[in-house]
Design a binder for these strands. Structure first.
Lengths: 246, 246
DNA sequence: CGATTCATTGACCGGGATCAAGAACCGTGG
DNA sequence: CCACGGTTCTTGATCCCGGTCAATGAATCG
């Protein structure tokens, strides 16, 4: 959440306390919130891995986004009456619940936190757009490379990387559901990436051996992550601009 | 914009005046704003047809969304420093510009308008998610059917439909760029939809002959449009909730 | 140590891409 | 009014990426 703006000490302490207050351990493959439901709480991934997904009429699944430590799950629930997709864990995870009422106070009184959520929404949208390009116009090989490279950047952003290693506890079937491919073909593409010495993985521990090469394979252009904005624009300006808004 | 909430008479008059003040006629295929640019104005489609799109390294294009009369183009420009995609017209169109400063005042003082924009953002996100499902998991035939059916609903929502006719001035190449297919295959799928008496089109004038059948072909589930929310939740409640937010 | 999930491999098939050539439809100027 | 060059639509032939089906290991777990 702090990717775009830095919280004040107070903000951070407040959020930490809230997140600490009500947390729950989930196993792998448990739903956190389901399509059609409404919750008065919003959820936050503290550790592990979750994903947004939809189930088609015929039972197939499409994963829309992965949620890593620090990602809010369902901030849209303030405005929309019910979820249009579900969220489940992919690995054992710790999820915090924050009551909607308290969150509303935070948004009202803590521009730093409101800002972070707002930016998060817009970045989510941007990521979704990039995924459409990915699905519409890139081949299976690039798609897998893209997904892994994006995960590398996100893991790096939240600081859970040592060397080029990171935990990404998904099955190849999960990757298939995320990329719109079949597990069989995901397997073949991963093998190719391994043969080309771009990545390696033992179990759920992934390693990017050649970041530049992987990025090349993915045709990755980081524009859409809006990562540079944080540097480009001093926080005070952004905060001011938001203040004009809310 | 009024899909989710009804404006007060004042709101509507204000917006109408603003939109009337500075409008410009665009030809077909002109860029309104380009990736990487920042504009202090926000744009609004008054008539015609525009689209969000991205160009890949190799020159291919992916259309991310169609923008019809009433759609705001770039409200995200308040927060993000530059566009991560471009917007161009697909047919001769009239586009209004509203200065960022004025818009900011509106957002500050007119909860109805702020609400409409906010909901619009969330609905956009929802539509993007559905498009990912579409691209990831449905075949070419369903994808084309889906696109046309969605357009029918949107055209109906903004009230530019007589019988089942509506103007949708795109080429088959445009549809290909939107669905991630080739123009040749788009052509074959449209022919199939015509043979099956689901749709007809002469030139840019499209007709849905059999809405139920088309919807069936598209595997269309309207959840994601959040159209029912407008009825389900009285405006006052939503407004109150938003007021707690901003 | 059985049972179940997950990764891997091979053979084969098909949806959609690619390439290429006509046909129909423009707006434009003579 | 017609001739025209440029889009756009249509059709056919062929190819290939990725899907499907099925079987075999490998790994994890009660």
């Amino acid at each position: 959440m702090e990717q775009f703006t830095s919280f004040s000490e107070e903000d951070r302490k407040l959020l930490n306390e809230l997140a600490f207050k009500r947390q729950r351990q989930y196993g792998a493959g448990e739903d956190i919130i389901r399509e059609g439901e409404h919750s008065s709480d919003i959820h936050l991934v503290l550790s592990g891995l979750a994903c947004r997904y939809k189930i088609l009429e015929d039972g197939r699944r499409q994963i829309l986004a992965f949620l890593v430590a620090g990602d809010p799950c369902d901030s849209e629930i303030f405005i929309l009456k019910e979820m249009d997709h579900s969220i489940c864990t992919l690995a054992p995870s710790v999820i915090a619940s924050i009551s909607g009422g308290i969150m509303r106070d935070l948004l009202l009184n803590r521009p730093g936190i409101a800002l972070a959520l707002w930016w998060g929404t817009l970045q989510d949208e941007s990521v979704l757009r990039e995924r459409i390009v990915d699905h519409g116009r890139r081949d299976a090989y690039s798609r897998i490379a893209f997904l892994i490279y994006e995960m590398l950047l996100r893991m790096r952003a939240v600081g859970v990387i040592e060397d080029q290693h990171f935990e990404f506890p998904v099955t190849q079937a999960d990757l298939a559901d995320a990329t719109g491919l079949t597990p069989v073909h995901v397997n073949r593409m991963i093998q190719r990436l391994r043969e080309e010495k771009l990545i390696a993985n033992e179990g759920k521990r992934w390693t990017v051996l050649d970041p530049a090469g992987l990025r090349e394979a993915a045709h990755f252009n980081p524009n859409y992550l809006h990562l540079d904005r944080a540097q480009a624009e001093p926080d005070s300006n952004v905060a001011k601009r938001l203040k004009g808004l809310i």
